[in-house]
Simulated assay, not measured.
Amino acid sequence: MKASQTLAGNLQAVLTDLIELQLQGKQAHWNIVGQNFRDLHLQLDEIVLAARQFADDTAERMRSLHALPDGRSATIAEATRLSQFPEGLTNTKEAVKLITERLERTVQTMRDVHDEVDEEDPTSADLLHEFIARLEQLAWMVNAETMTANAEVQEPDEK
């Protein structure tokens, strides 16, 4: 199978945000300070590792489909949907918020392209399912660092 321009573009969008997520995760990892530093420092490594693996899986899937992944820094900076991570030291509470936002934005990119990807290549959509599940889990885990026990939790819809 050979990817259409649409499929290649959709997978490139996912790749771009995954590469940016790993870069921002490391930026946070190196520059966080404050309460629960060590826990968050280690969690950020988990996020970076997942983003790195998912980026590699995406790029290799693209090549399997005869598409050309573009991981050059200029491409990533120009095309990412993630907001730039702040410069300098970041306290852990703010870092949790920033990283959670970036995890959720990366997942949103995957959800935005999912249906078109699935229509052309269900195998690539299966990868997106795996990535979404893990990134949402990581977002929940890192966000729990600053939640309180009385925080509002959305109840599942009754059927």
Rank of each mutant, 00 (worst) to 15 (best):
G34D: 07
V117R: 11
D115L: 06
A50E: 04
R102T: 01
T146G: 02
G71T: 13
E94F: 01
E119V: 06
L15A: 11
A144D: 13
V14S: 07
M147F: 07
G71D: 08
E130T: 13
T100C: 04
M147P: 00
N91G: 04
Q84E: 05
L89A: 04
V142L: 15
T109L: 06
R63W: 02
E120S: 13
A79K: 15
F131R: 06
A149T: 10
A67I: 05
E136Q: 15
P86E: 00
L127M: 13
E120I: 07
A59K: 02
R52E: 13
L11Q: 11
L44K: 15
S83W: 00
W140I: 09
L82M: 01
F85Q: 02
A144N: 14
A125C: 04
L7K: 08
S73L: 09
A67D: 12
Q35F: 11
M147I: 04
A144K: 11
N31H: 00
D118S: 14
L138G: 06
F37Q: 09
G34C: 07
L18R: 09
K159H: 15
R72S: 13
Q27V: 03
L89P: 04
R52S: 15
Q108N: 09
P122I: 04
V153R: 14
E20V: 01
D112H: 09
L42Q: 14
N91S: 07
T109Y: 02
S4C: 11
S124E: 03
E120C: 11
A77H: 01
A51Q: 12
F54V: 00
E78Y: 03
L89E: 05
E152L: 14
L127Y: 12
E120Q: 15
E158P: 05
E94L: 10
T109V: 15
Q24D: 09
N150F: 14
R72Y: 05
Q12E: 12
A95M: 02
V96H: 10
L89W: 08
I32N: 04
D115R: 06
R52N: 10
S73V: 09
D70R: 08
G71S: 11
N10Y: 04
P122V: 05
T92R: 02
K26Y: 08
E130G: 10
R105N: 05
Q43Y: 12
R111H: 12
T109S: 11
E120M: 09
G34P: 09
H114V: 06
I76T: 07
S64W: 07
V33L: 01
S73Q: 10
Q137A: 15
R81Q: 11
A151T: 14
H41G: 07
E116R: 13
K159I: 14
G25Q: 08
T58S: 01
G25H: 08
N31W: 00
H41M: 05
L23P: 03
F54I: 00
A74L: 13
L82W: 00
R134M: 11
R38M: 13
L49I: 02
S83N: 00
D45G: 14
M62Q: 13
T90F: 03
R61L: 03
L11H: 08
Q53N: 11
L127N: 11
A95K: 02
A77N: 04
A74D: 13
A144T: 12
F37K: 12
V14K: 06
N31L: 00
L135A: 09
